[in-house]
Amino acid sequence: MIEIHFPLEKKFQGGDKIIYSADQKALKLNSNYFYYFQGKNGVGKTTLLNIISLLTDFEGGVKIEDNTLCLNKDKNDKSNHEKSNIRKNHFSYVFQDPHIINIYTIRENLKIVNPLFDFDKDMSLIFKKIDNLKITASEKLYLQTKLTKLIHEKNNSPFYLSGGEKQLLSFIRAMIKPSNIIFADEPWAAMDKHLKEFIEQELYQYLDNKDIFSGIRNRNDINHLHKKNTVVAIAHIFHHSTEISAIGNHDKNYNYKIHIKKINSGKSDDNSLELIRFSN
């Protein structure tokens, strides 16, 4: 569970800042739901996601599970070490760009997020489980071909992998990491249809720990909450309302507007984004 206490403020160098507020004092992202931060390009979706996923500093309050991260000056800030622990034990990330480390091998890129990850054994396992997914045969073949390449080049630098292969690697990295909350920043922005189908399906399965990576992820057993209180938070632009209905069980009662005030070079610009929720 994540609780966002408004207002939230992010300051940039040069005095620019962005302030988030809502009609409600706090918004809750409850367990076992799929949340979308929906808004226009450049409105501040990524910044908000970075704030609540603790990837950037801010002023305001965000509560993760039982930990309150209050970053107002008059309240207690969590130490960097505690924030690292939360990222380590609870969070996982999929970025718009894969952000794979090129100076490590493919195997090492996965191993660093989960020390118990056994590349050969676990990648074979994932490969086999693809057969059981509810995707088309061509999509399965596509995935298995990409996976085969990753397996084959496990000791190489990911430098020469294609964008899709890097995205797949980035997704596998996020899914095998012990976590109960996934933050995904426009994960489909540079992704072909086959990969999008797979990732979308797996993220839904993640809410119930039924994704093909759950066994690997939960092997660490860091926190029993991982298995139950899962959340997926995604920054994403829906271009058509039909896209929303295509995703799945849209909870139409949960639809909040977050007001955004951007102060850029002294000029103020008001915008908003929507927070919508899906259940599995």
Binding site: S84, N85, R87, N89, H99, I101, I103, V113
Partner: peptide, 17 residues
């Protein structure tokens, strides 16, 4: 050159220490 690597490591839970 290693900011990216360090950033990814921190992102996935590696503490400064």
């Amino acid at each position: 050159l290693e900011f990216h690597t360090i950033g990814v490591l921190k992102c996935f839970g590696y503490a400064d220490g």
